[in-house]
Structure formats: structure tokens, C-alpha cells
Design a binder for these strands. Structure first.
Lengths: 193, 193
DNA sequence: AAAGAACTTGAATGTTCATTCAAGAAAGCC
DNA sequence: GGCTTTCTTGAATGAACATTCAAGTTCTTT
């Protein structure tokens, strides 16, 4: 009996990088071979097919981004400072060249015109979880009297999610990092008002 | 001497529809043949290649969306009412099933991971023109005292563009039309505040 | 009505790409 | 060390696709 020679997490993170960089459709098995170090046959053995790899990668992304969310949001003096930190981190990610300008889930969704139901469900779960993070945050902020109840936590969540989508799309057109920071600051203010 | 049998505008609008529906990359020449009624050879004769058709389509889109902008924004009691109308129209477009959920330019930009410089320039021109429309609008609103000068027209333009990008991306996940309307209303308020 | 010019057609071409599979290599077990 | 099981390799396969082009069609001019 032999053990597999690769580390699944490592492979999936490499795959995510490749997918985010070129888009799912344009990432060939050759690209994936180069990125992950796995030969086509091995990928098929481990994940069934290209879409199987995508689904596994989306699940990994889900885990990773949840962890990152918690890490960024925690350990601040106020709840809203955590939110601010998160938004600022998004901006820095967007400003990187060639790297992750888009949220992986969202990119896949627009890449696949008619996504497979399974893929769609994994993405929906991702987004759901992300939104829950924000909603919890706003509930805590409400409890701590950092925001008023003129809008519900859910409404604020929707606004901030929309805003981040917008920020990321805006970043595609290579604006100066100052403009992006200004937009992020404005978003933060609008959402907390 | 013969005349071409097709109407260029009609063909380009049909091509835009096809591109927006399936995405540029996934739209095959067969799809384009079906959509435009032109056989592959004719398309190559008229536009050089697939990318030539894309560029011509983007230029047509530029014209059409400029015209639509003016049409939507004009003829209201106040300048801001025009803006509101425009945002509301965007929401209705997003709510349509299968139709134009995304701005064509923006969709192409994310579809082509490394866009040809020519394509990129045409898109940049599109966006520039669109932004100018908003900036003019906010300048008029400032002159008419409908908004204050706590933020420049350019800053407000950036915010509204980001917001519309966000709205459109948000629409991809099939939210209820009420949520979308609420987000649009909030966007309008935040931008005019 | 005949010739010529321009346009249209769609099968053929060559390329790219996901996927398969048979042969080879390595680990565990006796 | 030999045997079995599992994993890895990468060339072969076949489908999908953009592009070409030679033959066919239609319009205009004289």
C-alpha cells in the first residue's frame, strides 16, 4: 500500500491561485500541472475532473477565507475597527498586481455562464457564510452601541457586500491606490452611518 | 457592384446580446452565426476576426449606452431625479432573467484575463465617457443646490460607479428584486448626501 | 442579357484542450 | 527479496473551436 505523494491543501491553494489568475475557463490542465506539480492523470485520479478540482478548490477557499475573516476582524478595541481593518485589507488585496483582484467565488460565478448546480451551491454556501460573518459583526456593534438601529444588521450586511463587490470590480480598471482607499473609507462611513 | 446584405448595427446589437449572454470566450462562431444570421466567412470578411467583431460591438455598445444615459437622465424636474431614474433602470436591467446582468464592457474586461491593448482602450473610453456623464450630472446638481460641496463631483462619480458595479455583481446571485431596489435606494441616498 | 465585381456559403484545416489509459515506479507486507 | 496494491506518468484520443478559401450566388453596369 502506498500513500499519495501530494499535500491536498497545498495543491488546492496552488489551484486557486492559478484559477484566480487566469480564470477557470482559461486555466488549462497544463497550467494546473505547472501550478500544482501534479500531472493530469493524478489530478483526474484525485478529483475526478477539472470541475471536481474546482469544487474542492472552492471548498478550500471557503475555509481559508473564513479563517482570514476571523483573524482580521478579531482583537480590536471596537467592533467597527474590525470591520474597517477587513475593508482595508480588501483594498490592499485589490491593489496587488496580477494577484487576487477578485473574490474567487464571484469570479467563478461570472466565468461560468451556466454553472453546474453543484458549483453554484458551493458558491452560495461561501457567500452565505461570509454574509453571516458581517451580520454577526453588526449585531455586536449594535449591542455595543457603536451603530444605531436605523437599519438592520442584515441591511448593513447587504450594503457592505455590495460595496466590496463594487470595490473589487472598480479595481479591475487600475485606479490609483489612493482612489481605492478613499472609496473604501466612504464605504465604511456609509455602512456605519 | 453588390451591396452587403446585412445591417451593421443590427448585427452588432445581436452580437452584443450573444456576448453578454454567454461571455465573449464561450460564444462560438456558431453561436454568432445563429445570433447575427451571418455565416462565419461573412463575419471574417466584415470584421477581420472574432476580436474585430468584439471591438466593433464594444463601439456600438458605447454609442447605445451613451444614448440611453442621456435619454434616462433628461427631462426631469430635478437633476437628482434623473440620477435616480438611471439607477432604477439599472436595477430593472439586473432583474431581467438571462438578459444583460452585467455591463458589457466590464464583463469583457473580466472575461479576457490579458486583454489586447486595443480592446482595453475601447473599454477605457467607454468607462471614461460614462463617468463624464455622471460628473456633468453632479456638477449641474451642485449648481442647482441639490447637493452640497462636501464631496467633489468626481468623488461622487467614483462612488456611484463603484455602487453600480456592486449592484450588478450582487444581482448575479439572484437576490429578490426588493433587496436590489433597497440597495439601489441606499446607494442613491449615500451618493447624494 | 452577358460580363464582371462583390458578397455569401459552409466544408475543410489546423490548433488547443480536457480526458483517458496502459505502462512504469514506489511503498507496504510477508 | 518477492508479491500485491496503489499511485504516477505523459503520450494518445477525440471533441470543440477559430479561421480559411474555393465554389456558388446575386447584384450592377453596359
Amino acid at each position: 500500500m502506498r500513500n499519495p505523494e501530494f499535500n491536498k491543501e497545498q495543491v488546492l491553494r496552488a489551484a486557486i491561485k492559478a484559477f484566480v489568475c487566469k480564470g477557470y475557463n482559461k486555466t488549462s490542465m497544463q497550467d494546473l500541472k505547472q501550478a500544482t506539480g501534479l500531472h493530469p492523470g493524478s489530478i483526474y485520479c484525485a478529483f475526478g475532473n477539472k470541475q471536481g478540482l474546482l469544487i474542492a478548490a472552492l471548498e478550500q477557499y471557503n475555509q481559508d477565507s473564513s479563517a482570514k475573516f476571523i483573524q482580521l476582524v478579531s482583537g480590536h478595541n471596537s467592533v467597527l475597527a474590525g470591520l474597517k481593518k477587513y475593508i482595508e485589507n480588501t483594498v490592499s488585496e485589490c491593489s496587488l498586481d496580477g494577484a487576487e483582484k477578485a473574490c474567487f467565488s464571484q469570479q467563478v460565478l461570472s466565468d461560468l455562464s451556466h454553472p453546474d448546480p453543484i458549483v453554484e451551491e458551493v458558491i452560495a454556501t461561501n457567500v452565505e457564510q461570509w454574509k453571516n460573518g458581517f451580520t454577526n459583526l453588526f449585531e455586536q456593534a449594535l449591542d455595543a452601541n457603536e451603530i444605531d438601529n436605523s437599519r438592520t444588521p442584515l441591511q448593513r450586511t447587504q450594503s457592505v457586500v455590495m460595496g466590496i463587490y463594487g470595490l473589487r470590480t472598480y479595481a479591475h480598471s487600475h485606479p490609483s491606490s489612493d482612489v481605492l482607499k478613499e472609496l473604501a473609507q466612504q464605504l465604511f462611513e456609509d455602512v456605519c452611518r
